[in-house]
Design a protein around this nucleic acid. Structure first.
Lengths: 341, 341
DNA sequence: CTGAAAGCGCTTACAG
DNA sequence: CTGAAAGCGCTTACAG
C-alpha cells in the first residue's frame, strides 16, 4: 500500500507543503479553516509522517538502545520491563541487545547503536568488561548514557545502582544474627563492580562481628550458574564441614546450593543457613524458600530511563547536564533458608 | 562530536560526493587509486554513514519490531534471545514492545511499529486478542509479518508454532500411562489458540483412553499465575478429592499447584501426579521436580526471524512470497511429579 | 572512470 | 496567513 505524503495532501487541497506541515504540527500561523481542512484530509487518508524523513531532519530517532548481559534472567527481564514501559510512556522505542557476558560482543553492540544513531544508551556491563574504551566512545560522541546495576565507576555518566556493599553487609549480618559462626561466600566473577562490592560487604560484616576473615571460605563463580552453586556447595561441605552459613552472590547460584543440600540430606537452615541476592521469583517457590536481598528491578529500569530522558532533553536544549547517581533501596527478605528459631 | 559526512570526505579529497559514495560501496566503476584514497580517509576519520539518510533513501530501517505479551517470562525471554541473536547475525536490530496481555496496548504498539516503519514485525498475541483488525492492517500495509506461539489462525501470515494439541495429548497420555484415572485440567484463558488446543488435546486423550470427559474437572485461568495454580489446587482437592492427575496449562501455574500440595501434605506424585507445560528453568529445581512439555523457545525465536527475513527479502526483490508455517517438535520431560513406580 | 543532478519526505527560517 | 526554497545526508540513473 502506498504511503501518504505531505505532498499528496498539499496537492489535493491545492495548498503548499509548508502549510500542510504547519497545520499538522499546530503552528499558530495557519488559518483555522485551512488547518481543519488539512486535519480532516490527513485523518481520512490516515496520514502518518515518514519517520525516516523526520529522523533525518530533526536528527533524532526517538529510539534508545539497551545493552544487557542476558535477557533470560529474572532480574534483567524485569529491568527491561521497567525501561520499555517508561520509554513508551515518553514516546521512545527501545532496541535491545545482549552481550552474553562477552566484552567483544558488547563493543560491537555499542558500535551498532552509535551507527544507528539512537538518542541515548542504557547499559549494564558484561562480566568480562574490564576495559572502558567503547563506553568512553559513547560519551565522546555526545550520546547520553546511563549505566545501571553492573557499572564502571570510572565512567563519568549517570548511574542507577544499589548499595551492593551495604546490602551484602546486611545479608551477612542476618546470618550472624541467627547464630552463624563460620560463614562462606560464593562470590561473582572478579571484574564486575557489584561482585567486588558484595565481597567487600561480606568482609566488612565479618570484621564488624569480629569473625576472622578466611580466604579459603570464598568461592568464585565464573559463569554465575546453577551448576556452579551445586558444585561449590559440595566443595564447601568437603573442605569445611563446619561452615554453618553461606552468602551467595545471586539467587540462581543459591538455588544450586540448595539443590545439592537437598539431595544430600544436609538440612537448611539447621545445618547450614543460606542467603541469596536479587529476589528472583524462583526463590519463593523452592524448598526451602530462599532468604535473599530484594533489589528493585523494575524501578531500576524506569529510573534509568528517566535519567536518560533528562539528559537527552538537556542535550537537545543545549543546556549543560551533570550526571547523577541514583541509589535504590534494598531489603533483606527472610525466608525458610535462614529461619532458625 | 561532529559527524563526518560524504561531503567532507569529498571536499578533502577534491572529488565528488558521488564518487566517494561509490568507492565506499564497492561499486566497480571507481579507479583503484581513488577507491583506496577514499577508504583510507574514511577509515581515518571513522566515517559511518548517517543511517537516517540511508533509511530515507533505501526505505529500509534494518530494524524489526517484536510484540510479546510479557518480557518477564522464562519462555518469552528465551524467544527474545533467539530473535535478537538471529537478527544481529543478519544486520537487523530489534525493537521490543510488550502488550501486557492487553488488546488495547497491542493495537497501540502495532501502530507504533508501523509508524516507525520497521522492515518487519514478529508477534505473539495477548490473551485478550479476539480481534484481528490491527493485524490485518500490518498485512494491508505490506509489512512482512510472522506470528509465533500465540497466533491467530485466521491471519494469513507465516507462523512458527508447536502442535499444542498433540503435545497436550501426549502429556495427558503420560498421566494415563502412570495410572491416573481421574485427570483434571487447569486450562488457559478462553481466547488464546494455544489454550484452546491444549484443552482439545486433553479432551482427545481422555476419549482415546475411554475416560469420560467431565466439564467440572476443567478449571480456567484468567491471569495464568502462580496464585491461580495455588487456588485451583485447593479447589480441586475440595471439589474432587479423588482427582489423581492434573495437566496444567503452563509451568508457572503448575508450580503454584505444587506449592499448595506441598504445604498441605498432599503427596505428589503418589496422591496426585502433576504435569506442566513449557519446561521453565524453575521446573527442574523445585521439589518435587516438575514433569512438563519441553517447547523449543530459543529455536522458536530464531526460526521466526528466519521466516521474516525470507519474506523481507522476497518483498525487496519484488518476488511473490507464500506464507509458511513451521511446526517445532515438543518433548515430554518426565520428572518426579509424575514418577510413580 | 567521474560527477552533476534529482530525489527520498520532511522542517523551518524567511519573504511577502 | 501562505508558500518558495534550502537543506538534512545519502543513493543512483544518467551523461560525458
Amino acid at each position: 500500500m502506498k504511503n501518504i505524503t505531505l505532498k499528496e495532501i498539499a496537492e489535493t487541497l491545492g495548498i503548499s507543503i509548508t502549510t500542510v506541515s504547519k497545520a499538522l504540527k499546530d503552528y499558530p500561523d495557519v488559518s483555522p479553516k485551512t488547518r481543519q481542512a488539512v486535519l480532516n484530509l490527513a485523518h481520512q487518508l490516515q496520514y502518518t509522517p515518514n519517520s525516516f524523513a523526520v529522523n533525518l531532519r530533526t536528527r533524532e530517532s526517538k529510539t534508545i538502545g539497551l545493552i544487557i548481559p542476558e535477557v533470560v534472567h529474572h532480574f534483567f527481564s524485569s529491568v527491561i520491563n521497567g525501561i520499555i514501559a517508561e520509554a513508551e510512556k515518553n514516546g521512545y522505542l527501545v532496541i535491545i541487545l545482549q552481550s552474553n557476558e562477552s566484552l567483544e560482543l558488547e563493543k560491537k553492540q555499542v558500535a551498532l547503536l552509535i551507527n544507528k544513531r539512537v538518542d541515548g544508551i542504557l547499559m549494564s556491563l558484561s562480566n568480562e568488561s574490564n576495559d572502558d574504551d567503547h563506553i568512553k566512545e559513547i560519551l565522546h560522541k555526545g550520546i547520553p548514557l546511563v549505566q545501571f546495576d553492573k557499572i564502571s565507576k570510572l565512567i563519568h555518566s549517570s548511574k542507577v545502582i544499589i548499595n551492593d556493599q551495604l546490602a551484602a553487609m546486611q545479608a551477612v549480618q542476618h546470618l550472624v544474627n541467627i547464630g552463624c559462626k563460620k560463614i562462606a561466600h560464593i562470590r561473582g566473577p572478579v571484574n564486575p563492580q557489584n561482585a567486588i562490592d558484595r565481597f567487600l560487604g561480606y568482609k566488612k560484616a565479618l570484621e564488624k562481628n569480629s569473625i576472622p576473615f578466611n580466604t579459603n571460605l570464598v568461592y568464585t563463580c565464573e559463569r554465575v550458574s546453577f551448576e556452579e552453586g551445586y558444585a561449590f556447595a559440595q566443595q564447601i561441605k568437603e573442605e569445611h564441614p563446619d561452615v554453618d552459613g553461606i552468602f551467595v552472590i545471586t539467587d540462581l547460584v543459591a538455588v544450586g546450593v540448595l539443590a545439592y543440600f537437598n539431595e544430600h540430606n544436609i538440612k537448611v537452615p539447621q545445618d547450614v543457613a543460606v542467603i541469596g541476592f536479587s529476589n528472583w521469583f524462583m526463590s519463593q517457590v523452592i524448598t526451602p524458600k530462599l532468604s535473599t536481598v530484594d533489589q528493585p528491578s523494575y524501578e531500576m529500569g524506569s529510573e534509568a530511563l528517566k535519567l536518560l530522558l533528562e539528559e537527552m532533553t538537556a542535550r537537545r536544549d543545549e543546556k549543560s547536564f551533570q550526571p547523577k547517581t541514583i541509589e535504590l533501596k534494598t531489603t533483606i527478605i527472610e525466608r525458610e533458608s535462614t529461619a532458625r528459631s
